[in-house]
C-alpha cells in the first residue's frame, strides 16, 4: 500500500478545519431555524425537539412568501433581459463592421467604471419623475443591460467563426435568426456564466431595492429581511429562519448544478 505522507494529512486536516469554519455560520443559521425560542441560545446544533414552526409562521403570518416571489420574479426577469440584450449587443459589436463600432464599445465598456452608488440618486429622481417608484419596472430598469455582460459576450463571440454566419446568410436566413439560432447556441457556456452572475447579483441586491420600494408588497428578500429583522429583533430564531429561506434557493441551485456554476464563475471571472 502506498504510504500517505504525514505532511499531506496535516494539510488536509487544516483545509478541512477551514472548510468547517467557513460553513459554521450557515450551519448555525439552519440549526437555529429549527429551534424553539427557549433553545436558541444553546450551542447544541441539533435541537432536542426540532420544529418546523418557525417556517410555518414565516410563510403563514408574515409577508415572506410575497418577498420570495418578488425576488424570484425580479431576478429572473432581469437575468433574461441581460442575457438577451447583452448578447445581442456583444454579438453586433463583434460580428458587424460599421462606423462608430469602436466608440460604442468603449462607451459601453466605460460604464463599468461608474459605481452603482453614484447612479442610485439620479435613478431615484428619474423613477420618481416617470412615476416608477415602488413598482416592478422601477426595481428592474437599472439592471436590464450591463457593460460587463456586453464585454463578456463580445469576447466569446470572437470564437464563433464568421464562415458559419456567412454560410447562413447565403442560405437567406435573416440577421436576427442568425443571431438567435446560430450564434447564440455556440456561446451557451458564456451565457450560463452571465446568467449565474446576474441572477446572484440581483437575488442578493440590497441598495437599489431598498431605495426604490416603499410598500412591503414590493420588497425583495433582502429588503424584506432587513425590515423584518429590525421588527423581530427579539426573536432570533425567526431572523435565522428568514435568513435561511433567503439563502436556500442559491444553495439548492448550487448543489444541483455545482459543476456548471464553478465553471461559469471561472469563465465569467477570468474574462472580466
Amino acid at each position: 500500500m502506498k504510504q500517505i505522507a504525514p505532511k499531506k494529512i496535516v494539510i488536509w486536516t487544516l483545509l478541512f478545519i477551514g472548510a468547517v469554519i467557513m460553513m459554521t455560520p450557515i450551519i448555525f443559521m439552519f440549526s437555529a431555524s429549527f429551534k424553539f425560542n427557549d433553545e436558541i441560545y444553546e450551542l447544541a446544533l441539533i435541537s432536542s425537539e426540532p420544529t418546523l414552526s418557525n417556517y410555518i409562521y414565516l410563510f403563514g403570518n408574515t409577508e415572506f412568501l410575497m418577498w420570495f416571489t418578488n425576488s424570484i420574479f425580479v431576478a429572473l426577469l432581469t437575468t433574461l433581459c441581460v442575457l438577451f440584450f447583452d448578447s445581442l449587443v456583444g454579438y453586433t459589436l463583434c460580428k458587424f463592421r460599421f462606423r462608430g463600432r469602436k466608440i460604442i464599445f468603449i462607451a459601453i465598456l466605460s460604464t463599468l467604471m461608474i459605481p452603482t452608488e453614484m447612479l442610485v440618486i439620479p435613478w431615484y429622481i428619474l423613477a420618481r419623475d416617470l412615476g416608477l417608484l415602488d413598482s416592478y419596472i422601477g426595481l428592474i430598469f437599472p439592471g436590464i443591460m450591463t457593460g460587463f455582460g456586453v464585454f463578456l459576450m463580445k469576447q466569446f463571440f470572437e470564437s464563433v467563426p464568421d464562415d458559419y454566419l456567412d454560410a447562413a446568410r447565403i442560405d437567406g436566413i435573416s440577421e436576427f435568426e442568425i443571431f438567435t439560432k446560430i450564434a447564440i447556441p455556440m456561446v451557451t457556456p458564456a451565457l450560463s456564466a452571465l446568467a449565474i452572475f446576474t441572477f446572484l447579483g440581483n437575488w442578493t441586491a440590497f441598495l437599489w431595492p431598498l431605495i426604490v420600494t416603499s410598500s412591503a408588497e414590493l420588497y425583495t428578500i433582502p429588503v424584506g429581511l432587513s425590515s423584518f429583522s429590525g421588527e423581530f429583533q427579539s426573536e432570533w430564531e425567526m431572523i435565522m429562519t428568514g435568513a435561511a429561506v433567503a439563502s436556500l434557493p442559491t444553495l439548492l441551485i448550487f448543489l444541483i448544478l455545482q459543476r456548471y456554476i464553478i465553471r461559469g464563475v471561472i469563465l465569467g471571472g477570468l474574462k472580466e
Binding site: L15, F16, G18, A19, V20, M22, M23, P25, I26, F28, M29, L200, W203, T204, F206, I221, P222, V223, L225, S226, S229, W236, I239, M240, G242, A243, A244, A246, S247, T250, L251, F254, Q258, I262
Partner: peptide, 23 residues
Amino acid sequence: LRACYFIPFLTTAVAMAWVWRWF
C-alpha cells in the same frame, strides 16, 4: 472541500449580516 469554501459566496449579504450580528 471546494464546495464548503465556495458556498458562502452564494449567500445573501443581508441575511448573513444578521447571522453574524447574532454571533
